Computed example of a mutant assay.
Amino acid sequence: MLTSLVVGVLLMNVFAAVLVVVRAPVYGARLYRPMLLNLVLSAAPLVVLGLAVVVLLPLVVVGTPRPVVWVVGAVLGLVWLLLLPNSGYLITELNLNHRREGERVPEWYDVLSVLVLAMSGVLTTVLNVFLVVLVALVVGGVDSAEPLTGTTARLLEGVLLLLVAFGIYLGRHVRLNSWDVKHPRHLVRKVLGHLRTPGALGNAIGFTLIGATFFALMYLVMIGPVVRGLVDVEQLRNMTGS
């Protein structure tokens, strides 16, 4: 189940990249490089998460003191969190702004391309959140699937999705990037200055809540059956083992 989920998300990202790349030679149009850059940035959180697994799991296995594991995990987790909105950001590319007058590209092709691009971002976001919940439980010493249905997991998922939605808002409307965190004072001034403009705070709250709700529903559709399956398999093994 989990393997199918990961493979499916990766294939959706590859499909999105292929559609962007082949558009140029097939229809004699220019290559729209910003879409490819956005896809690379969308995949970055998964790369960081993979690095975190490679680093953290051996530390847990060899019995490294918990404070050390949590510090390393917190640093990698912060990097991951700063990059995560780049995945969901692809939903804001659901438009045809890249079309140029005189290009022979059929409208249906571009409509499907941006739809695939947006969905790849949604799926990547959902997968990232689920995997980081799994990693957090493993690092915390949990060796059962049951906690995936618990309050702690739900709270973590909810907080992460709210942060993702707010990060997307900052990227689209304040034009911030993940690496702007290198200049925290400038970043804070820019965000506060934006939120003080008339109507901006309401728009930020509305976008964050609606965006987080959308991702939460997608999470429920995608991850709910996987979690239920993992719990059922574990219960079945416990029953047969006893």
Rank of each mutant, 00 (worst) to 15 (best):
P225W: 00
F214D: 00
L230C: 09
F215M: 05
I223F: 00
L209N: 01
G229A: 01
T149W: 10
A200S: 12
N13A: 04
M119R: 09
Y219I: 08
L192E: 12
E157F: 12
W80A: 10
R185N: 11
V79Y: 02
T64F: 03
S242K: 12
G211P: 07
V54R: 12
T125L: 00
L31P: 04
F15S: 03
V72W: 03
R100D: 13
V133G: 02
F214A: 14
V75A: 14
L112E: 04
V61G: 04
L117M: 12
V75Q: 09
V60Y: 08
I168A: 01
V9T: 15
V159H: 03
L84D: 03
Y109E: 05
T149H: 11
V40T: 12
L217A: 15
T3Y: 13
V116M: 01
L176W: 04
E101S: 14
L160K: 01
V132L: 11
N177F: 11
V20T: 10
R66V: 15
L127T: 12
G158N: 09
L76C: 02
L51F: 13
V26P: 04
V47I: 12
N38P: 01
G8S: 05
N86F: 05
A136R: 02
L39K: 06
A24L: 02
H98D: 15
K190F: 08
G73F: 01
A145W: 14
V221S: 10
P67V: 00
G28P: 05
T149K: 13
P198R: 03
P25Y: 04
V159K: 02
T152R: 14
S87T: 00
S42V: 04
V60I: 10
D143G: 13
P147Y: 08
L31T: 06
T152C: 02
H98T: 14
L51A: 15
L201K: 00
L82W: 03
L5V: 11
F166N: 05
Y27G: 04
T3F: 14
V47E: 00
L41D: 07
V132T: 15
N203C: 11
L163E: 01
T208I: 02
P34K: 06
L230E: 06
T151Y: 12
Y32T: 00
L90Y: 09
V135E: 14
P34V: 03
G224V: 05
A29D: 09
V53Y: 15
L37Y: 14
F215E: 00
F15P: 05
L161S: 04
L217G: 01
R104Q: 11
T149A: 15
I205R: 01
P34H: 05
L192S: 12
A136E: 10
G206C: 08
A74Q: 07
V40P: 00
L81W: 04
M35W: 12
L10E: 10
A136Y: 09
V111Y: 11
N38W: 08
G50E: 09
V116P: 00
T213Q: 01
G171A: 10
R154L: 14
R154K: 13
A153C: 02
M1H: 11
M239L: 15
L160C: 02
